[in-house]
């Protein structure tokens, strides 16, 4: 099966430094937030691990977020298929 594995399965992709600097200097908009999603693809042939860029994540700000929206989001592969073999999948408590 395909599954999200481990505590790092969904993490923030930090924004590019130049975009962050412009925002922090008051010269640009807040950079859009994206997630890196690590999916173990047991159904692939051969099985592998794929990372996806998911976002932008909208509707959240400095005050926290309970109403995140992915209305305009896309899912883009960040690796070539098979680049990370199944044996290198993230540690999962249920593996033991």
């Amino acid at each position: 099966v395909d599954f999200l594995s481990g505590t790092s399965a969904v993490e923030l992709i930090e924004p590019p430094k130049d975009v962050a600097q412009r925002f922090l200097n008051g010269d640009g908009p807040a950079p859009p937030r994206f997630a890196r999603v690590t999916l173990v693809r047991g159904s692939a042939d051969p099985p592998d691990v794929m990372e996806y860029k998911v976002g932008p994540i909208l509707g959240c700000g400095t005050a926290g977020c309970d109403t995140a929206s992915l209305e305009t989001a896309t899912i883009e592969p960040m690796l070539a298929p098979g680049a990370v073999p199944f044996q290198k999948r993230p540690y999962e408590l249920s593996d033991v």
Partner: peptide, 27 residues
């Protein structure tokens, strides 16, 4: 905030979105 990790709300929204687009994915 721009470097903060994803909030629980954001994480849930991402997981829900992935499962919507890829129904076979298990969490």
């Amino acid at each position: 905030w721009i470097f903060d990790s994803l909030s629980p709300g954001e994480t849930k929204a991402v997981v829900d979105f992935v499962k919507l687009k890829m129904p076979a994915v298990e969490t």
